[in-house]
Amino acid sequence: MRSVLPALLLLSVVLVACRPETVRAPDAYPLSGTVSGRWGDSPRLRLALVGTGVPGAVRNDSAIGQNLEGNGLSGWQFGFELPAPGVFNVAGVYQVVAFDDANNNARYDLGETVARNRKWLVVSPVAARLPEVTLPELLGGGEVLPAMTVRSGWNVYDQSQPLGNANPAPFTTLTSYDLSR
């Protein structure tokens, strides 16, 4: 019996680790906001984390925990699970975008209808001064974000505000990350 007990304990740990992530209310995620705009009839809306690491590792990931709920007024509330900052071994500049998954492949593809904003999610494994970043084609290309100082973890840079001590700002929970088209 003693030899079976460790195997059963290991099996239960594996099963708990493999269970599907539960869907939570949108405001229970680290990143939340609204999606608005014209999307046509019966859109297949999804969210994706897209961007680039410094230097140049492009990411397009929609297989991240998320919840997108219609509010009945042709808008949606969403919640999005950001990866733990420790997952990234380099700094990166990202956005969460909403897109109409027209080909139903659960991945944002160029040409699909998309909504985004002017807030950039900057992640760094350590506090650092980051160089300016030219964005990949996936995010419109050619746009340059200025050199900036960030803290370890997730930071938000709002392009509509001046770069300074409070911009970019570190966060663990960010609400009102609204997306529109």
Rank of each mutant, 00 (worst) to 15 (best):
M1H: 13
R2H: 13
L5D: 14
P6T: 12
L9D: 08
L9K: 13
S12R: 07
V14D: 01
V14N: 05
L15N: 07
V16S: 04
P20M: 04
E21R: 12
T22V: 09
R24M: 06
A25I: 01
A25D: 09
P26V: 00
P26W: 02
P26Y: 02
A28R: 13
A28M: 08
P30Q: 08
L31D: 03
G33L: 02
V35P: 01
R38D: 04
W39Q: 03
S42V: 06
S42E: 08
R44F: 02
L49T: 02
L49F: 03
L49P: 05
V50W: 00
G51Q: 04
T52R: 09
G53R: 10
V54G: 01
P55E: 14
V58I: 15
R59E: 13
S62E: 14
A63H: 15
N67D: 14
L68D: 11
L68W: 11
E69P: 00
E69M: 14
L73C: 07
S74P: 01
S74F: 06
G75M: 06
G75W: 03
W76I: 01
F78R: 02
G79M: 06
A84S: 07
A84I: 02
A84C: 03
P85C: 08
P85F: 04
P85R: 06
G86I: 06
V87A: 11
V87P: 03
V87D: 10
V90L: 15
V90E: 15
A91P: 14
A91M: 14
G92N: 10
V93L: 13
Y94Q: 03
Y94R: 00
V97T: 04
A98V: 04
F99A: 05
N105S: 03
R107Y: 04
D109M: 02
D109N: 07
L110A: 00
G111W: 02
G111S: 00
E112L: 03
A115I: 00
R116I: 03
W120D: 07
W120P: 05
V122E: 10
V123P: 08
S124L: 10
S124D: 06
V126R: 15
A128M: 14
P131T: 15
E132S: 15
V133A: 09
P136V: 13
L138Y: 10
G140A: 13
G141W: 14
E143N: 10
V144E: 03
L145Y: 08
A147V: 03
A147N: 04
R151M: 14
R151N: 14
W154E: 09
Y157E: 12
Y157I: 08
D158M: 11
Q159E: 10
S160P: 06
A166W: 12
A166D: 15
N167F: 12
A169G: 05
F171S: 07
F171Y: 05
T172P: 04
T175P: 02
S176W: 01
S176L: 07
S176F: 02
S180Q: 05
